[in-house]
Simulated scan of single mutants.
Amino acid sequence: MDPNDVGTYTLLSNIYAKEKRWDGVVKIRKLMRDKNIKKEPGVSWIEIGNVTHVFTSEDNKHPDYGQTYQKVKELLAMIKPLGYTPDIGAVLHDVEDEQKEYYLSYHSEKLAIAYGLLKLPPEASILVIKNLRICDDCHSAVRLISKLTNRVIVVRDANRFHHFRDGRCSCLDYW
């Protein structure tokens, strides 16, 4: 109906990827390039001290990215004993499982939350804004991070506010 709607192309590409039909993914992405249709990248931001810090997935442009990556790595190691298992089935790329886990580890919202944990006082809530919907993997991870750190973490995604506290989310895991 709308040949320039990026959402339609993204959905079709994701359907092909979910079925591991990588030839279909390649065709759709080529068609998008040919038509100059671009998917909006996932971005998360957090404000600290009147400064807005913006993160993209696998971001290495932030001045404190090394420290932030280390914090994410520590958090993920600490929530695994609490039941966290990376949802690699959600990664729609034709790569090895180890690479899929890496992609999930450094999503923009995880980076923004880790940065907030590094820079905000221990009693402060963490508020992260995200331009797209939070993925299942990040939602599960943030629930456990809120429990582990005893922090209130609020993620405002494209659909709603997710208010995480004590390992639970206000959306009751329906989003």
Rank of each mutant, 00 (worst) to 15 (best):
M1H: 10
V6I: 06
V6C: 13
V6S: 15
L11R: 13
S13H: 00
I15V: 15
Y16K: 13
R21D: 13
W22P: 03
D23K: 13
G24H: 04
V25F: 07
K27W: 03
I28F: 04
I28G: 06
D34A: 11
I37V: 10
K39P: 02
K39G: 09
E40V: 14
P41Q: 06
G42F: 03
I48L: 01
V54N: 02
F55C: 14
E58W: 01
D59A: 09
H62R: 05
P63C: 09
P63L: 13
Y65L: 10
Y65H: 15
Y69E: 06
Q70E: 14
K73R: 15
L75F: 04
L75H: 01
L76N: 12
M78F: 00
I79M: 05
K80G: 02
K80D: 02
G83E: 03
P86Y: 08
D87S: 10
G89Y: 04
A90G: 15
V91D: 09
V91E: 06
V91I: 15
E98C: 11
Q99M: 12
K100M: 08
E101M: 10
E101R: 12
Y106P: 04
H107T: 13
S108T: 08
S108K: 00
E109S: 09
E109W: 03
E109N: 05
E109I: 03
L111W: 03
A112Y: 02
A114N: 07
G116V: 04
K119W: 03
L120W: 02
P121Y: 01
I129A: 07
K130E: 11
N131D: 04
N131R: 06
C135T: 06
D136G: 07
D136R: 12
D136M: 12
H139Q: 12
H139F: 11
A141I: 01
V142M: 06
L148Q: 00
N150V: 01
V154C: 07
V155I: 15
R156N: 11
D157S: 09
F161Y: 13
H163K: 01
D166C: 01
L172I: 10
L172C: 13
W175F: 12
